Computed example of a mutant assay.
Amino acid sequence: MTGPRVGVAGAGIAGTLLAWRLKLADRSLRVELVDAGSPERGATGASGGLVRGYEPDLAQLDLAASTLAELRASRLLRAWSGYQETGSVYLQADPADPAAVEHLERLLPGSARACPPGEAPYMAARHAVVERHAGFISPRRLRDEVLADFVRSGGRLVHGTVGGVRAGPGGTVSWQVDGRRRHYHSGVLATGPWTPVLLPGDEYRTKLIQYGVYDATGTVPAPFVDEVTGLYGRPGPGSGILLGVPSDAYDVDPAALRPVPALVRRTTDLAARIFPDLGITGLRHIVVAADCYTAPPGLRLRPAPPAVPHLFTFTGGSGGAAKTALAAARHAADRLLHDLAVPA
């Protein structure tokens, strides 16, 4: 006996984790994962891989801390992702919401402490949340290992370009893969920066992601985010450091991305201000990619336009969806299983 057929378009970290969660939840599901894009130009290939529990938004904090808790509890996931625990610092202008810190403490006991100005690392004028249980992963490595396990578990992987998304006969949803139409009981577009092409409109927008890996002298800081300036970073290979700032370049073509020199200048200027004892001695390389954004941001399952029932998107991250991907994929799988009337 076979169960419903589910299609997931997009084999980045989000789509792969979702397909894997579905297959593990019910082996009778016929889950097909379409590797539809270029991982190097999508968010998975570009992600710096910061994983921390704290987020100012409580819903995003729950996903991030739940992801980190699962990662730390699983030897397999730690190995698959290359998890390195270094701690992290989140700098902000205002005090952290005590409810957020308390919720983080429940999910990751003994990890976080809130610091007032004067006690915050790096910038004395900032408030900060300092976490002990945080660090970074390789999203691409995690994706590759999960993809292999998905196939071992009986999931089907196909390669090709997705297009022509529409409602199919009998309440199904369909799309074309290299000219061949494929039908599913439920379909999910986890296509990142290519989503606006498949679902034209104002809800989904493609945005540039850019950061640099620099040679550095002095003490390289633990992973950090400065909410005020937008600067973020983590230790890089060797004595290097990964540094970046958010861009404001929307509606870019993900197949024709170019570095923005102004972002490099802004990044190095901010790093010199925030870390006066850190010396940036050279730029090793720039990473340029794109992701899909929507409002409110955050990686989660969203219904597509009503004209195509049983079609969802799993995208709309804030550019750092790796830190929420495990938990977000679990929630998305649960919702799809409910939609299919399949017990989880």
Rank of each mutant, 00 (worst) to 15 (best):
T2N: 10
G7P: 00
V8F: 02
I13D: 00
A14F: 13
A19M: 06
W20Q: 07
A25M: 09
S28E: 12
V31A: 01
V34D: 02
V34C: 12
A36G: 14
P39R: 12
P39Q: 08
G45Y: 05
G48M: 11
L50R: 06
Q60F: 08
L63G: 01
A65K: 00
E70C: 13
R75N: 12
L77T: 00
R78C: 15
S81L: 09
Y83W: 12
G87P: 02
A93P: 02
A93S: 14
D94N: 13
V101G: 06
E102Q: 14
A114M: 04
Y122G: 01
R126C: 12
R126F: 09
E131A: 07
E131K: 05
G135W: 07
R143A: 10
D144C: 07
E145V: 13
L157M: 09
V158T: 13
H159D: 10
T161I: 15
T161F: 13
G163R: 13
V165P: 03
R166I: 12
A167F: 01
T172Y: 01
V173A: 11
S174C: 14
G179L: 07
L198M: 00
P200C: 08
P200M: 06
G201R: 04
Y204S: 07
Y204M: 13
L208D: 03
I209M: 14
Y211G: 00
V213Y: 00
D215W: 10
D215H: 13
A216F: 07
T217C: 06
G230Q: 08
L231M: 02
G236L: 11
G236S: 09
S239L: 11
S239F: 07
G240A: 07
L242V: 15
Y250C: 07
V252H: 03
P254N: 10
A256K: 09
P259C: 11
P261Y: 09
P261V: 11
V264T: 14
R265A: 15
L270T: 11
A272P: 02
A272R: 15
I274C: 04
P276N: 09
T281K: 00
G282D: 01
R284G: 05
V288A: 02
A289F: 03
C292Y: 01
C292T: 06
C292M: 04
C292L: 05
Y293T: 14
P297G: 12
P303H: 05
T315W: 05
T315H: 02
G317M: 06
S318R: 11
S318C: 13
G319R: 10
K323F: 09
A328C: 08
A333Q: 03
A333D: 04
R335W: 04
L337H: 01
V342D: 02
